[in-house]
């Protein structure tokens, strides 16, 4: 900020600016005079899509210092024309919510509380259980000797909030593993 000049003294400013009653430019504070919206100061803007309902409203994600600072409608979208409903407008809170869980939690059998787990251990444990269950519950043929080649011991629910690419990998992996009880919200 430039060096303070006596001319900036509010009373003088009031008369200099013509705002004699002190209701306009004369009373603005330095903070006010240098205000800028965080949409303008963001490092980058990323085009995205609202994660709530199926309308598919366009969103603009404003990022500053690798944090999401604002999410609002994308006026370019022919679907939503920049508008968002209350849920869509709350998207930034979905990302920055102080209640959000960002750590893996593990509950051992019969335990009364959670404990921490690192990612490597967690995925290893799940992979082991996956294969164990698959081995134990494998069905090769039905009672007529027709091929089944499956496990009825592993089920999955979810997908309507996931990406196509994610659903594709889930379906591909589970089908190859012989797990067939794969379901999502489309049926609920």
């Amino acid at each position: 900020m430039a060096a303070w000049s006596p001319l900036e003294w509010p009373v003088l400013r009031q008369f200099r600016s013509g705002d004699v009653f002190g209701r306009g430019p004369a009373v603005t504070s330095p903070t006010t005079r240098h205000i800028a919206p965080r949409t303008a100061t963001a490092d980058r803007v990323v085009q995205s899509v609202c994660p709530f309902c199926a309308v598919g409203c366009g969103q603009k994600i404003y990022v500053k210092d690798e944090k999401v600072v604002q999410i609002e409608g994308d006026p370019d979208s022919p679907i939503s024309r920049g508008r968002l409903c209350p849920k869509g407008a709350s998207s930034a809170q979905l990302v920055n919510n102080p209640l959000r869980q960002t750590a893996i939690r593990y509950r051992a059998p019969y335990a009364t509380d959670w404990q921490d787990l690192d990612r490597d251990t967690a995925i290893d444990m799940i992979a082991d259980r996956f294969l164990e269950t698959r081995r134990r519950t494998w069905q090769d043929r039905d009672e007529h000797g027709r091929p089944l080649r499956r496990t009825m011991g592993i089920a999955s629910l979810g997908g309507a909030t996931l990406d196509n690419e994610e659903n594709y990998l889930i379906k591909k992996l589970f089908t190859a593993a012989g797990a067939i009880q794969i379901e999502n919200q489309a049926r609920i």
Binding site: Q70, E72, R83, L84, C85, P86, A89, S90, A92
Partner: peptide, 12 residues
């Protein structure tokens, strides 16, 4: 009556 205005206002 969707209240998107209330939410967008609070967010901003």
């Amino acid at each position: 009556g969707c209240k998107a205005c209330e939410v967008a206002c609070k967010q901003w």
